[in-house]
Write a protein that binds this DNA or RNA. Structure first.
Lengths: 205, 205
DNA sequence: AATAATATCCTATAAAAGCATGATTTTTCA
DNA sequence: TGAAAAATCATGCTTTTATAGGATATTATT
């Protein structure tokens, strides 16, 4: 019996690429693909799946939430996060939500097969060998940001001032300022310029 | 005669995905793939290629430089930049180096085929439908910066304040401030956050 | 040599950001 | 249900930025 795989990703290229890589393999069968969370859930309703590959960024809900939902409704389905290099920060939350590991989208065929083997055997797989020429990207760890902090960060990056952000979010200026100070603290910087540069480098904005 | 395609990308998934998407198509033939610039160049030495898909980020040299090299050595080979959403800033430099357009990696099959058709016909293809919330970000062109402005910009991005920059460059604070204002003007933004975000997006810092 | 572009400097004001300290309410989750 | 985390708000103060109005010297460039 071959391992049944569902791939959920909104990038046709990734979908096709994974499918193409996996269909040649013994004992592995791609039984379905979905480009959003809704389709993924409804596919699971009517099909048996062993492992679901979940993109972290999906058009409707995030892969992180989707992972949680799948684990709640279909605890037997193992999940593997698909992330880009810049999204490794979010991986830990996928794991918290029950994922069995993660694959960087730039992984090679061997990594992918190894991941499937590990996960199917009940283990975890984290591919940590970022061989990419990280160039100038500082190996900083991405600080954990709350929902509100992310919102504020994005609005700052868009050039809004505290008063404007406050208006947009329907909160007081002091609240925005607090979030802002927390962002500076978490990123270990002392002004907006450094903050935005770091956040941009990490792909957060 | 079918259109001969070379794909250069260091992500196996993208390579496989594109290949898989294109091999089904009439009149299109993927004659080769490469995961770095060296292999790409040596492939061109011995093979005929109509269109080369070039990833912007390659392990050895950047796709931008590779594009230039290809255009110098093989002017008949048309090139198409492959970029992620976050790399669209670099696209303009690819175009300057002779590329016939660019494709976002999250493009669908239709976009890709349309791009090939356009380019083969001697035209350009830019897929501009960023369904992602592009917010307010217009496809800005890189403003011309003087030597001093670039220096100041970098120091701002490093988190230095005007007084610190002044000290570093042995000029007065008012001079630094003037350069700073000129940067804001040239980038058409009104604060540091936007400035740094734009500059980072354009690869200037 | 004349012009244009660049770099330098100044004063002055208003707006925004940064920093410290503290507190209350709401959510989340074990 | 109770603790922890997150989100909210406040006050006061200092520093930095943003904006506006100049001015002069130094390089290129034609």
């Amino acid at each position: 019996m071959s391992i049944k795989i569902l791939i959920v990703d909104d990038h046709p290229l990734v979908l096709e690429g994974l499918k193409s890589l996996l269909t040649d393999c013994e004992g592995i069968e791609v039984v379905g693909t979905a480009s959003n969370a809704i389709d993924a859930i409804s596919f699971l309703k009517t099909n048996e799946v062993d492992i679901a590959f979940l993109d972290i960024n999906l058009p409707d809900i995030s892969g992180i939430d989707l992972c949680k939902k799948i684990k709640e409704q279909y605890p037997n389905v193992k999940t593997l996060a698909l992330s880009t290099f810049n999204e490794r920060a979010y991986v830990s939350r996928m794991i918290q939500n029950g994922a069995s590991g993660y694959l960087i989208k730039s992984s090679g065929k061997e990594d992918i097969l190894e991941a499937i083997r590990q996960v199917q055997a009940g283990g975890y797989f984290m591919n940590v060998n970022f061989d990419q020429a990280t160039s100038s990207a500082p190996p900083k760890t991405v600080p954990f940001l709350t929902r509100r902090e992310k919102e504020v960060l994005i609005l700052i990056a868009e050039g809004l001032t505290n008063p404007q952000i406050a208006e947009q979010l329907f909160v007081s200026v002091t609240t925005v300022n607090t979030h802002r100070q927390n962002l500076l603290m978490k990123f270990e910087v002392s002004n907006t310029a450094s903050l935005i540069k770091l956040a941009a480098g990490l792909g957060l904005i």
